[in-house]
């Protein structure tokens, strides 16, 4: 199984604003959100980044999807460096997160066409994929309704569909079920399974143990920006449940469970 994504010593430090210091009750002025993170993801694998809030998951995935640049370290996606060849990386991946919004003013139908054009997809392929994906997520009926008038669940489904107009081989998904109602969350996890079964590579982040257990082949546990364990799900959960194993690592890393 070939490696399609390799992260090497990814490090990212943020300056904390005054506002943020107050918000997080801290006097630190710097925060290392990702600290020397290295991991490999094989083709067709589902890789989970598991960690509590603020562990650095979003930061890591944003680096992988080239939205932000690492301070040091690098990662390659299908052989392209996220630092030196961001455009090729962006062409190879689909990045999904609830933070990526669609413009309220447009319809899913228009946006699908727009993003397909941005990604240089021909009209026939665009039409075919639009029909398939809209059908699959029950968007067809609302394809002509402005995003601003859609329900939250429908918006999220539209946003998901539009992130994969180009049928990417690698899908990076930050907190797939965060903020979704139970039904939409189910639709999304089912779809992730489908993608896995069709041979796509998936990298997701979550703080939900059950999601990892349900979907992931391998998992990296990150705590305060550090990779504390990275292995197959089976190897990590040898004798205990994933949750117990996580808290062992958490306490080892100096975390306190009140």
């Amino acid at each position: 199984m070939g490696v399609v994504l390799r992260a090497e010593r990814l490090t990212k430090t943020f300056k904390l604003s005054k506002k943020q210091q107050n918000l997080e009750h801290t006097a630190e002025t710097m925060r290392t959100a990702a600290n020397n993170l290295s991991f490999d993801v094989g083709k067709g694998e589902v890789f989970g980044l598991l960690g509590p809030n603020g562990a650095g998951k979003t930061t890591t995935l944003r680096m992988l999807s080239t939205l932000i640049k690492p301070d040091s370290g690098d990662a390659t996606v299908e052989g392209h460096s996220i630092v030196r060849e961001p455009e090729q990386v962006r062409a190879a991946i689909g990045f999904l997160t609830s933070e990526l919004r669609l413009e309220d003013f447009f319809t899913p139908d228009y946006l699908f066409g727009f993003f397909s054009q941005l990604r240089g997809i021909d009209a026939a392929t665009t039409e075919r994929r639009k029909r398939e994906l809209f059908e699959r997520f029950g968007i067809s009926e609302f394809a002509g309704v402005k995003v601003g008038s859609l329900s939250t669940g429908m918006k999220q489904k539209a946003s998901l569909v539009i992130s994969i107009v180009h049928d990417p081989g690698i899908i990076i998904f930050d907190e797939p079920t965060n903020g979704l109602d139970v039904i939409t969350a189910r639709v999304v996890t089912d779809y992730l399974k489908e993608l896995r079964d069709s041979g796509k590579t998936i990298i997701l982040s979550t703080h939900i143990f059950s999601l990892v257990e349900k979907l992931c082949d391998r998992v990296g546990i990150i705590i305060e920006g550090r990779m504390t364990a990275c292995d197959t799900l089976d190897a990590i959960t040898r004798d205990a449940s994933l949750e117990d194993r996580f808290f062992e690592l958490f306490v080892e890393a100096g975390g306190e469970v009140a």
Partner: peptide, 17 residues
């Protein structure tokens, strides 16, 4: 406006230069 509404990031993850 695009920053405020968070729609610019959606554009920035595409290969658009």
């Amino acid at each position: 406006g695009e920053k405020e509404r968070g729609t610019i990031a959606t554009l920035l993850v595409t290969p658009l230069k």
